[in-house]
């Protein structure tokens, strides 16, 4: 059977990169005696897939990975076991059973994510919140996307689903996943550019709130957090 684990990443743990977080959780599985399944072959590895990698420096309340189990377990108890061998800065929030359907792994169904992004210094003009109201009023939000060979302009506005000014920063819901992916720093850069701020100086703090899949509910499609779709 398969299960999805949701965890938070905060504090000093934001400096641990994605690959190391994966390795960290492989060790958590062993410490907590989670009966995780292995692949075959001469060097078997754990069947574990992470939904959407989080950049170094970013904290999160909604990180996910899927695992395959060899037997049914009490998921509440498993969460407790995992949290008992945890470090400060990682906390397992819940563990839910999910469909065995291969197409429905966390990796493939991710469609959107919520972020809070704050400006860390005073690189933005003082009255930026008033001015920022017009950011989403633009017809297009063009950014320059650099690849190895070329530079091209891309309109990121269709990938920004929600955008609100909150306290000292911005709340946004943006396209995330394997089809379309927009990083919060790109939005903040575009906003800075719109405000005429000195982007060399600007530095941001990003926090991921939640990751969503696009689920069909009745006739409509809605974003539903990953621990609610299975």
């Amino acid at each position: 059977m398969k299960a999805r684990i949701k965890f938070r990443k905060f504090g000093a743990m934001k400096f641990i990169g994605h690959l190391d977080v994966m390795r960290f959780f492989q060790k958590v599985m062993r410490r907590a005696d989670i009966p995780i399944a292995f692949t075959g072959g001469f060097s078997p590895h754990m069947i574990m897939s992470f939904a959407n990698p989080l950049g170094v420096g970013v904290t999160s309340d909604g990180e996910y990975f899927d695992i395959e189990l060899t037997e049914e377990i009490d998921m509440g108890a498993a969460v407790e076991c995992m949290n008992q061998t945890m470090v400060e800065g990682i906390e397992v929030v819940n563990m839910v059973p999910i469909s065995d359907d291969k197409k429905r792994t966390g990796m493939s169904i991710v469609a959107a994510a919520d972020y809070l992004s704050n400006v860390k210094n005073d690189a933005f003009p003082e009255n930026w919140k008033e001015k920022a109201a017009g950011f989403m009023e633009q017809e297009q939000i063009l950014i320059v996307k650099k690849t190895k060979k070329s530079e091209k302009e891309v309109d990121i506005k269709p990938m920004i689903y929600k955008f609100e000014i909150r306290e000292n920063g911005v709340y946004m819901q943006v396209a995330t996943g394997s089809v379309e992916n927009l990083k919060p720093e790109v939005v903040m850069q575009a906003l800075g550019q719109y405000l005429g701020a000195d982007l060399e100086e600007a530095s941001f703090v990003h926090h991921r709130l939640e990751v969503y899949a696009l689920a069909e509910i009745g006739k409509s499609k809605e974003f539903v957090s990953l621990d609610k779709v299975w």
Binding site: A12, M13, V56, G57
Partner: peptide
């Protein structure tokens, strides 16, 4: 929460910041 000796800016600038934050299991 523990306060780190190095600022976020420094830790994000250097290679492998995990070298300097401690907090490991055990």
């Amino acid at each position: 929460m523990r306060k780190l000796a190095l600022s976020d800016d420094i830790l994000l600038k250097v290679d492998k910041p995990a070298r300097y934050i401690g907090n490991e299991v055990n």
